Simulated scan of single mutants.
Amino acid sequence: MNNIRNDHEVARDLATEAGQQLLKLRAKHGFDEPEVLRTLGDRTSHEFLFSALGRLRPSDPVLSEEGADNEARLESQRVWIIDPLDGTREFSESGRTDWAVHVALWENGELTAGAVALPAQGSTLSTVDPPWLPEERPAGQRLRITASRTRSPEFVQRMSTQLGAEVVPMGSAGAKICAVLLGIADIYVHAGGQYEWDSAAPVAVAREAGLHASRIDGSRLTYNGEEPWLPDILVCRPELSGMLLASIRDVADRDGAGPHSGE
């Protein structure tokens, strides 16, 4: 069996199964004790993914939000980057569907496979069969930018004002990038910093589907760093990237402050 193809399937199947376990936890425990549910969700999904990857890919280190960092990953050619429960707050709130499970493979400097399960939406987006990206946006449609629902996105608000865009509040970073993949939004931009596991899997799928994904200065997103931290990110339709990168520069210059201000 082709190993690269098999890695795609492993990412998809594990993300989907972890998501199903999280749905069962929600059904069993309800939402009366959100902190308990969040803790159970993080632990259950991490333990399942970590154990499954240890069985299926025993030679590959795992970088997980919920696990201790394994320094062996810095010398490895293959590292799995996982977020067992992205959007923990939303997971613990009844009726919310904007939470996700992320499973990605970094290999020799690149993201080579990835999957984002959206369990409450009944879907998993993956590099096995990435979403089809329409060739063009509907003419005259207002731009839509996904933004955090819990933190005041001042930079995003300034940018949306300049572009005349609508801001669509949403939880998980994975759900936001998937919203761009599915045509619910056009742009995901974040300048407040995030960990690698917040974006590795959705970026892998976004790139495979043909979306633009970069730092907000247009430089390359890099993963499996010594400090697993990314200061900023832009994901959008490829034909919008030049305009958006210029808008980001203009907003920063006009305000006399970097785009991280207020995030």
Rank of each mutant, 00 (worst) to 15 (best):
N2V: 02
N3T: 14
N3I: 11
D7F: 10
H8I: 11
A11K: 05
D13R: 09
L14D: 08
L14Q: 07
L14W: 05
Q20V: 00
K24T: 15
L25S: 02
G30W: 06
V36E: 12
L37R: 03
R38S: 13
R43C: 08
F50W: 06
A52T: 07
G54V: 09
R55H: 12
P58Y: 10
D60T: 12
D60S: 15
V62L: 01
S64L: 12
S64W: 01
E65Q: 03
E65H: 02
E66D: 13
L74F: 14
S76F: 04
R78I: 00
V79L: 02
I81N: 05
D86H: 10
T88Y: 04
R89I: 06
F91H: 05
F91Q: 11
S92N: 13
E93G: 09
S94N: 10
D98E: 12
W106G: 03
E107K: 09
E107G: 07
G109R: 02
L111Q: 05
T112I: 13
G114W: 12
P119A: 02
A120D: 06
Q121Y: 04
T124G: 11
V128Q: 01
D129W: 00
P130L: 01
L133H: 01
R137E: 09
P138Q: 11
L143E: 09
A147R: 03
S152L: 12
F155L: 06
Q157P: 01
Q157Y: 07
G164P: 09
A165C: 13
S172Y: 08
A173H: 12
C178G: 08
A179E: 12
A185D: 03
D186A: 01
I187A: 04
V189E: 03
V189P: 09
A191H: 01
A191L: 03
A191I: 00
G192I: 08
G192Q: 01
Q194M: 15
S199P: 04
P202E: 02
A204L: 06
A204T: 08
A206K: 00
A209I: 02
G210S: 09
L211Q: 07
H212C: 08
R215N: 10
R215G: 09
D217Y: 01
G218C: 14
S219Q: 15
S219V: 09
R220I: 11
Y223K: 07
N224I: 07
N224G: 03
E226G: 08
E227K: 13
P228E: 05
C236L: 10
R237L: 13
P238M: 10
S241F: 10
S241C: 06
L245Q: 01
L245M: 00
I248P: 00
D250R: 13
A252K: 03
S261V: 14
E263Q: 15
